[in-house]
Design a binder for these strands. Structure first.
Length: 558
RNA sequence: UGACCCAUGGUGUAAUGGUAGCACUACUGAUUUUGGUUCAGUCAGUUAAGGUUCGAAUCCUUAUGGGUCAACCA
């Protein structure tokens, strides 16, 4: 019975179905996938989907996954990106079997190109890129053949070798596949295979001055690595025909390409070009700015690998256009952090509370749980005395209906401590409330309450004497609109000017002085937080990962 | 005025010719020393029109809508 239920719960995505069918039919005994980033930017949440898919497949089925850097364009690529990509994948919790680089195959790829020339299936074209573009036709009009298309094999061989030897300047010639200039698929209209770029490559240095195009590197690398299922996004669907054609003509291992729809998330952008722009134009504090949808940004923000993997699982894999609600990502991280975050109290915007019936100078040690969801995390000490801070927002002189917090004559519990009653709001000469005079109920001590008093509100607080100042950074969505790329004008016009709010007035309970970078915290009633990398000896900075769900804020909006 | 891909609640995703389900969101209520958590419940969907069939979200046709393709980027 339980097995039956399990079977029902586990529904396969279309790629898993293909794999199960291939395994069942005996087409493959095991599967080989690869994650093929180009090292020209940092990985983002969209890549996380592809990573979880490719690596997840070989966790569920026999086989393995390679990491392969698609580094065929030296002018945009850099080792900085290689390093960050490796780090991000590891952090997400995945291990690759082999680490490869398309650039490792440059020699083989060159041989493949020669083979194609010998078969009369590739030629050197002296046309300029403008001429080529002009002769390529349009989606509705056929292209025209280049006059260089009929060059003899020997001449092509010789010219290609000269290209390789650096005898021609950038852009002067290309190697093209000889397919069909009238093909309905534009990619089959004699696609460029090699171009001349006298550029320094991050791995091969100055060994090469010709570099293969994506279409002449990706599928071939898949083939060299015996990748069985080469998974990419939908925009590569038209490339599949060329992918298959090249493998067939080269007579190499037949990898197969399968496409799924990239995952889009609202209120952000996931395009390396746009993210790079935000970084270069200093709209954000680098690739790992906590507002960025990059893996490193999410990490700095306090997201956990578990929550990101869970998110990827939940949104699934399909072929249709989509715009996933970022609220789901937030749900996933709240769910995980609720289980693991240590509870602490931090008052962001303090107002002083004086307990008038509590002895001046007396200190009392109280105990409260570190995490009610995980008793194994034990308890910590709180120091109670007559002067405390609470949140300004937690007091209202004239409260609206359903306000459970403090107001004149009303009682609330201070978390882990006593019930207090507000007797007087002390104001300065301008009428601003500067202090609350309260009395506490001695019998209401947390854990041994015999007062019989029931209060609806419980507030977080800190001891005025021992609290430590900390900086808190609150983040909101980076963009004001759901899909910035779908709006008129520049996407940057839709940046949310309030995406970062720095709180300089926060006072934290002293326990937080021991905060660790690896630890996650829930500031009671405020949200989940973690230490930011800019924290120094003299200043602790906390990033807000996500707020807590806030039923009261919702109530107020009505 | 081409080719290709796609179309299920607000969002994401299942149902593989046989009871349209799950999750998020929203909304009720219960519990609660976090207006958190937890628990119970409610609202809400097959783009349209034909056809095949005992039976269609599923197969066929057409329409509609969305996406992709004219980089010496990947």
């Amino acid at each position: 019975m339980s097995e039956e239920i399990k079977k029902e719960e586990r529904s396969l995505n279309f790629i898993e179905e293909i794999i199960e069918s291939d395994l069942k039919s005996g087409k493959y005994k095991s599967v080989v996938t690869r994650f093929p980033p180009e090292p020209n930017g940092y990985l983002h949440i969209g890549h996380a989907s592809a990573i979880c898919l490719n690596f997840g497949l070989t966790q569920d089925y026999p086989g393995y996954t390679n990491l392969r850097f698609d580094d065929t364009n030296p002018v945009t690529e850099d080792v900085e990106y290689v390093d960050s990509i490796r780090e991000d994948i590891k952090w997400l919790g995945f291990e690759w079997k082999n680490e490869h680089y398309a650039s490792d195959y440059f020699g083989t790829l060159y041989e493949y190109a020669v083979k194609l020339i010998r078969k009369g299936l590739a030629y050197v074209d002296d046309s300029s890129s403008e001429e080529m573009a002009f002769m390529k036709g349009t989606p509705t009009e056929p292209g025209k053949e280049s006059s260089y298309r009929s060059r003899g094999i020997d001449e092509n061989l010789e010219l290609f070798e000269k290209m390789r030897n650096g005898e021609f300047p950038d852009g002067s010639r290309t190697l093209r596949a000889k397919i069909d200039m009238k093909h309905i698929n534009m990619l089959m209209r004699d696609p460029v295979l090699y171009r001349i770029k006298h550029a320094h490559h991050h791995r091969t240095g100055d060994d090469w001055c010709i570099y293969p195009m994506y279409d002449f590197a990706h599928g071939q690398s898949d083939s060299i690595e015996n990748v069985t299922h080469s998974i990419c996004t939908m925009e590569f669907v038209p490339h599949r025909e060329l992918y298959d054609w090249l493998i067939e003509k080269l007579e190499i291992y037949p990898s197969h390409q399968y496409e799924f729809a990239r995952r889009n998330i609202n209120y952000t952008v996931t395009s390396k070009r746009k993210l790079l722009q935000l970084v270069n134009e200093k709209q954000v504090d680098g690739w790992d700015d906590p507002r960025m949808p990059t893996i490193s940004g999410l990490r700095r923000r306090g997201y956990t690998p578990e929550s990101i993997r869970d998110f990827c699982d939940r949104i699934g894999v399909a072929k249709r256009e989509n715009l996933v609600d970022v609220g789901l990502l937030e749900f996933c991280v709240r769910e995980h952090l609720n289980k693991v975050a240590l509870r602490r109290m931090v008052v962001f915007d303090p107002i002083k509370v004086v307990i008038t019936n509590y002895p001046v100078g007396k200190d009392e040690v109280l105990h409260t749980e570190n995490n009610p969801e995980d008793k194994s995390t034990g308890e910590r000490e709180l120091l109670f005395s007559n002067e405390l801070f609470i949140e300004k927002d937690d007091f209202m002189e004239e409260p609206p209906k359903k306000y459970f917090r403090l107001s004149p004559g009303k009682m609330v519990r201070l978390k882990g401590a006593y019930i207090i009653q507000c007797d007087e709001a002390v104001k300065d000469e301008t009428g601003k409330i500067i202090q609350l005079n309260c009395t506490y109920i001695p019998e209401s001590k947390s854990g041994s309450d015999t007062s019989g008093i029931h209060v609806k509100g419980t507030l977080h607080w800190v001891n005025a004497k021992t609290a430590i100042p900390v900086e808190v950074r609150e983040y909101d969505r980076l963009f004001k609109v759901e899909d910035p790329t779908d709006e008129e004008g520049d996407f940057k016009d839709y940046l949310n000017p309030a995406s970062l709010n720095i709180v300089n007035t926060a006072m934290a309970e002293p326990e937080l002085a021991n905060a660790k970078f690896a630890e996650r915290y829930q500031f009671l009633r405020k949200g989940y937080f973690c230490l930011d990398k800019h924290t120094s000896e003299t200043r602790m900075i906390f990033n807000r990962t996500v707020t807590l769900k806030d039923a009261w804020a919702k109530e107020q909006k009505r």
